[in-house]
Design a protein around this nucleic acid. Structure first.
Lengths: 348, 348
DNA sequence: TTACGGAATTAGCACGTTCCAAAAGTCACG
DNA sequence: CGTGACTTTTGGAACGTGCTAATTCCGTAA
């Protein structure tokens, strides 16, 4: 009776009390119907349900969480949705949530720590039950820490040193080592590592694997071959000439860098796999399709995201938020860009 | 005094009252500080702020909206984040929100109407102020309608017939017409339209432009040349043989279909632009990079998203939710895949 | 008849915030 | 010292829901 105006107006949204009045019961009964309690008689349940749809009732979750009910929202804070790898990861998280009756909300921080702070704060303010976080590059664990207390947090893919939170990440070091071993096996002596900047956890791990493989093979670790560059196609293009001068092969920080590099090479008449060996990391969809097809260390972002979500949901169910570390396996997928079917170029 | 336990515990989150007590003021004053009111003395403001960070206070937006405050959350309901075009659109919305002090939350419906319903319901329950909606394919306006009353809703890209909500969309018909005119200008007589299914609004519009251009040129509209297919690479691959038999050129529903087609052709030894003319729609980033480079009707998803967000924020500011329609221009970007530099093949 | 027990329903407080009206404090002026 | 004007602070009633404990209803056994 208090709701039902058809055109837009100031008509307040129907509340549980309106529904109760409309159905001729108390608000407690309506609350029981909402929570699916078996206490309420079948006839009452249908009558109340009817009233709810008659009035266009919408549950007010703010009021509910206020009273102490648990929220079913998982926040996903992703650093860069324009990188297909992170999109895959987000989709993996979403898929896993569907099974567990959680609703994931995504926010894109665009690698901006300030925005990341805003976004996490918002998610907490709105009562998210847990967080899957892929931290922006220059994040400060100190700033984040107070925002993340008393809620389960899983860091996916990237890890932030000072943060006491679970980690779900690929075996970066192992994967990088395998990739460099492969290049060494093809006869390369001067192998570069391209992309990213110091203090990025993923880069450090991959770089460690790179160094390990060199060391195993008795090759020197030459800092001049470790080349920093922004994680985007033009960043890669910018260091292409330098690479050609200094080395015959490169392990790239990730596929975005590798693909940027292959394209920059192509524009200069250099063909990856024939004139220069390129290996990527992540194995995004495009790696399979680019010419020449990109050899890459496969991570399976979807599975990674799914594991993170499962861990989060398990922690929420048990109430035990003690940090756990999960390492997800990586495998080298050999295609064309590493020149596996050829010998490395003779020109030094 | 009630907060401050370091390890995880049952310690309740600090409330505005705790802060007030800690700072030696009333909760009303703290509330004023939170809202940035100029009423409160500078010295008091700093003292209260200090108490807030001392106690690790987190604003409880649920309680606030309960009392009647406006929410600053915009919901983005996106049908398919694995399509780069929609990712671009989402990023456009996000960018626009940053200027307007709104926080966008993304949800991915994976083209699943049931999930879409859940997601929209959740967003309403959590008090989203407005919605940017790119409806899933088989959405029902009837089911959606009651969920969307009394809140500004903008349909981006796609439109759902029965829905009374604003629309921000590209000039699909015009763009498709230009594309087909271009193909006709190159001498093609048998031009197919590939991808999507009936009842998809975007397809209907693009198909209308296709038909218009044929009609203008006096070419017959042959239903056998309008080929349905799922909007993904393998869907396109499935109809490639049929296309080769029936036509010499194709306008694809979008770039995802076009790229799938080009790859399927390549696998069969058919080169787009030389043996068969392919034109896409949307002009996603990959269109520029695939071989041969894809001729496509550019939409600029980022700008489209930005316009949608701006419209939404304007409506929220004014309180006037009357539906508006915004058409965003499209332009044909000619590259290689349409064979602009060659004549169409002589083989019928 | 009363007593009992289980099923179904309800009253009412609590949650953390905002907002209104009102109170208290401060200052200058006559 | 009283008055008025202005600045700053405060008490308390909402807001919509969940939960606990209490109440009613109904049928059956003593």
């Amino acid at each position: 009776m208090s709701a039902g105006v058809d055109e837009r107006g100031t008509e307040a949204r129907a509340t549980i009390v309106d529904v109760a009045r409309h159905a001729g019961v108390s608000k407690s009964t309506v609350s029981l119907v909402l929570s699916g309690s078996s206490l309420v008689a079948e006839s009452t349940r249908t009558r109340v349900s009817q009233s709810m749809s008659d009035l266009g009732y919408i549950y007010h979750r703010g009021a509910a969480t206020l009273r102490g009910a648990k929220s079913r929202v998982l926040g996903m804070v992703i650093n860069d949705l324009s990188n297909p790898f992170f999109v895959e990861m987000a989709i993996g998280i979403e898929e896993a949530c569907q099974g567990g009756a959680f609703i994931p909300f995504i926010a894109n921080t665009v690698e901006n720590p300030v925005r990341q702070l805003q976004v996490i704060r918002s998610m907490r303010e709105y009562g998210a039950a847990g967080l899957a976080l892929s931290p922006a590059i220059a994040s400060s664990a100190l700033e984040l820490k107070p925002l993340l207390s008393d809620m389960p947090v899983v860091q996916v893919m990237r890890r932030l040193p000072g943060l006491r939170a679970s980690i779900v990440a690929p075996e970066n070091r192992f994967g990088a080592r395998k990739a460099v071993q492969h290049l060494i096996g093809l006869g390369h002596k001067r192998i570069a590592f391209v992309g990213g900047f110091p203090a990025m956890s993923v880069r450090e791990e991959r770089l460690a694997g790179y160094a390990e493989a060199l060391d195993e093979a008795g090759l020197p670790y030459d800092p001049a071959l470790v080349i920093e560059a922004p994680i985007n196609p033009s960043g890669a293009a910018g260091v292409a000439p330098q690479l050609l001068r200094s080395s015959t092969a490169a392990l790239c920080f990730n596929d975005v860098v590798a693909i940027g590099l292959i394209r920059a090479f192509a524009a200069a008449g250099v063909e990856a796999g024939r004139d220069f060996a390129v290996v990527g990391f992540d194995d995004i969809d495009e790696a399979r399709h680019i010419f020449p097809a990109l050899t890459s260390v496969a991570v399976n972002g979807r599975a990674l995201g799914a594991r993170a979500a499962q861990l989060l949901m398990r922690q929420l169910a048990s109430g035990d938020f003690a940090p756990e570390n999960i390492l997800s396996p990586t495998t080298l997928v050999v295609r064309v860009s590493c020149g596996a079917s050829r010998q490395p170029g003779v020109s030094s």
